[in-house]
Write a protein that binds this DNA or RNA. Sequence first.
DNA 1: TCACGGTCTCACATTGCTGTAACTACTTCG
DNA 2: CGAAGTAGTTACAGCAATGTGAGACCGTGA
Lengths: 166, 166
Amino acid sequence: MTETTGQQMSEIDQQLAMDLGYSGTQTAKVVGISYRQLDYWARTDLIRPSLSDASGSGSRRRYSYGDLLELKAIKKLLDAGIKLEQVRKVFEYLRKHVTTDIAAAHIVIDGGSVNVYDGEQLIDVLQNGQGVLNVLSLGGVQDELKHDLAPIAAAMLDKLPRTSHG
Amino acid sequence: MTETTGQQMSEIDQQLAMDLGYSGTQTAKVVGISYRQLDYWARTDLIRPSLSDASGSGSRRRYSYGDLLELKAIKKLLDAGIKLEQVRKVFEYLRKHVTTDIAAAHIVIDGGSVNVYDGEQLIDVLQNGQGVLNVLSLGGVQDELKHDLAPIAAAMLDKLPRTSHG
DNA sequence: TCACGGTCTCACATTGCTGTAACTACTTCG
DNA sequence: CGAAGTAGTTACAGCAATGTGAGACCGTGA
């Protein structure tokens, strides 16, 4: 469609495009979300365009390259089945604890906390299954269950006809 | 923590409690969710009590030990910020591809597919950070972004005053 | 029969969108 | 400059999913 014939992008052209930033419509297309969704995210403070924010009807939003990266990451998380609420928390955190070497890093969300790793173990895992992983240890769950269950089961037995455990 | 003085649960007592099953209220308390939530999940088919389902007002639900395990796992996933919609898919899948050795296994959700592992690599990761992990490779995201961006940026440059790239 | 524990129904709230129409700004043509 | 066209933003309404709370309803045991 867009590729006519000799339409290669030079490094300089890319830089130019990046400096100009991207409109809302363009951004939505690149990221693969609806414009309404992008608008909603901006209005609800999930992510605002860092080059120029909207200021009244008729104004224009301008998204930076970095914004697009974040948006892509957000979409990845959503597609993996993570709640928007959680995504909000994650990016709130990440904006404070700046990430310099994004390409090499991996975001690791462990319950409440957020971390950025490029260590050995996690990279091994990522090389196997690329993208987002959700891992749950059922062993730990089972242990917790037993622990939580004990008092309930005990109370239950107290009400049974013959108490053979006193 | 749990061993008070004389109130120990014997293996047999536990077995007895498990056979009787657990009421809705008990189940909700053990799992750590509201009764309304448990009811909602039953009515919307996320998880129904396997010992006896509700059959008209006044009837009683009875949850098995296995149900509680599932409910615990569900809550873990929700607390980790995973969408209920995704959780539904995961457990739909898991019920078909039965899990025999639950204690040793780990659920791994990778975008669309669900797997149960007890391999070396994943266990290593789990020992570090117990519970649920969400891992995202930003390197891959950046690559995808560049790829998706090229045609858009090219179209943009076509509209600029001087075309030095033809 | 009455109280109690449990379930069911209904109404309502919140979140996360989506669609549409109105409005504003920028661009272009005369 | 001024009018028209286009792109982008805003306001408003509506929808589905996920709950929550109140209260009606039912069955069982005392």
